[in-house]
Simulated assay, not measured.
Amino acid sequence: MTVANESAAPLPPVRLPDDDAALDVRDLRMRYGTTDVLKGVDFTTRRGEVVALLGPNGAGKTTTIEVLEGFRMRSGGDVQVLGTDPARGDENWRARLGVVLQSWRDHSKWRVRELLTHLGTYYSPYSTAQITRPWDVDELIAAVGLTEHANKRAGQLSGGQRRRLDVAIGIVGRPELLFLDEPTVGFDPQARREFHDLVHRLADDNTGILLTTHDLDEAEKLADRILILAGGRIVADGSADELSRQVAAESEVKWTRDGQRYVHSAADATKFVRDLFAQHGDEITELEVRRATLEDTYMAMVRAHESGHGDDAALPFNAEEVNR
């Protein structure tokens, strides 16, 4: 893997117009005692964009999210969430956010429909021309796949069903910006697929979504952009494909000919495969072309940061570099 000009800091994100920006984070810093957890985090996200924030345990993902949600005061930097500094956000601002935490909050005595109906009333005073009214409760229950359980008490739900209820609670106010922390923990494959459809539906309705997950396959399926946080800084920003092109310049090509298996690394896989068929034609079988997966990319970037670049040098993994 080649890292060019490793002493240079990544280019700062372009400031988006207020009407387009969901998050605008500049030089976000957080210090606990003498320990710097966040050392200058910079990124922006758009409304209607799904962004995955990835990073190893202890990288500062939770701290970053809590600052953006207004639950934790930052040590420094400029942060705008829906055009407002979260440290000064009022109830009207909070009504525009949705939060799905990793840990489940106990509402065991409430029935599903009753709970969501009750929570929806908190958003009604903030329903203006700019802030959409809360979900219709039955539409919301159907959207998260709990129609058959609408009259059950929350304490009677399975773990996966309770997680669906968590998601419903997070989006009951039709948020303009949604924070999702490991949202599909406990979901079976069908529930996971339905949730992914819901995320895309919310994004199509111009909801900005910031997702944290350890499921890299999920991040690749859901996210328009991926941010990798390591050592207190964003060390990568781009789509899964853009990031993989920075880490792996070559693709792995496998094929079988005359019963023998071959493997070759090619910088231009398309040209190599074209030449291969021109030379051997129908003798080529079981052709496979593999580029770096998001997991390959993630591991390579985190290892590169941890193994030699140090805390004071931000790696220049930036999607803008790919397009130059």
Rank of each mutant, 00 (worst) to 15 (best):
T2I: 10
L11S: 11
L11I: 15
D19C: 03
D20F: 03
D20N: 13
L23I: 11
R26D: 05
R26C: 04
D27F: 00
D27L: 02
M30V: 10
T34C: 01
T35D: 14
L38M: 09
V41G: 01
T44P: 00
T45A: 08
A52M: 07
L53S: 06
G55S: 14
A59Q: 13
K61G: 05
T63I: 14
E66Q: 12
M73W: 11
V79T: 14
N92W: 02
L101T: 15
Q102M: 07
S103R: 08
S108D: 10
W110C: 07
W110G: 03
V112D: 00
L115E: 02
T117P: 03
H118F: 10
L119K: 05
G120T: 06
T121Y: 01
P125L: 11
R133Q: 12
P134R: 10
E139M: 06
I141N: 04
H149K: 12
N151P: 00
N151R: 15
N151K: 14
A154D: 01
Q156A: 13
G160T: 05
R163P: 03
R163T: 01
R163I: 04
R164P: 02
V172N: 02
E176W: 03
L178W: 07
P183S: 12
T184W: 06
D188Q: 01
P189S: 08
V199G: 08
V199L: 09
H200F: 13
T207S: 11
T213W: 00
L216F: 09
A223N: 10
I228Q: 03
L229V: 15
I234T: 10
V235F: 08
A236H: 03
S239R: 10
D241P: 02
S244T: 13
R245L: 10
Q246G: 11
A248T: 12
S251R: 10
S251H: 07
W255S: 09
T256G: 02
D258S: 13
Y262R: 13
F272M: 07
D275F: 06
F277P: 01
A278Y: 08
E283L: 14
E283F: 02
I284D: 00
E286G: 04
V289W: 12
T293D: 05
E295G: 05
Y298F: 15
M299P: 00
V302W: 15
H305P: 00
G310L: 06
D312C: 01
D312A: 13
A313N: 13
A314C: 10
P316C: 08
N318W: 02
